[in-house]
Amino acid sequence: MSLFRLFLIFVKIGAILLGGGYVILPIMQSEFAEKRELVSKDELVNYFALAQSLPGIVAANMTMFIGYKLKGKTGALAAMFGVIFVPFWCIVLLASVLNIFVNNTYVTGALWGVGVAVLALILLTVREMWQRSERNLFFYFIFLVSFTALMIFKLTPIQTILIFSVLGVLIKFLQKKKEVNK
């Protein structure tokens, strides 16, 4: 497969990626496993788990894993620019006309509603993450201290992540050491 062909496949994936990045797995399974047999379905699932465990945008990670697997570093870049191609121009075009419509009844109404839905989706994301985690004393402890740090001590997101992830790894490390000593 040529680099340009790879780019085009990812342009298509980006264009039909509606409702957030999570739908990228079924789309990729159809494009790469069913239509083309380039990557197996199981492999895609493994990459997806890995993409979720890395920092950054899950769909972007996933895109680059497959791009890299198929065509190396340039493949990863081609996939990356492919997948953001349509979304990028959609945003640029919509944003430039938004000001014209911002006082339009339909648009303000719709934006108000979608804003509320986004809040609901954020809360649902929390619930999803909450349910998928192993909720032990460690989980609740890290959650409570980082939430307090954000709300009361006004730490920035980065500060919170840096301080408490180091703390968390340290706790895990000490726990493991204690177990080994036993």
């Binding site: 998928r132 890290i142 959650f143 980082s146 919170t160 408490f164």
Partner: peptide
Amino acid sequence: SAIETLKPISCALLLFVS
């Protein structure tokens, strides 16, 4: 361990924004 720790922190961050 880092991934295990990032989960509760992400929950806290998102609730903070909410």
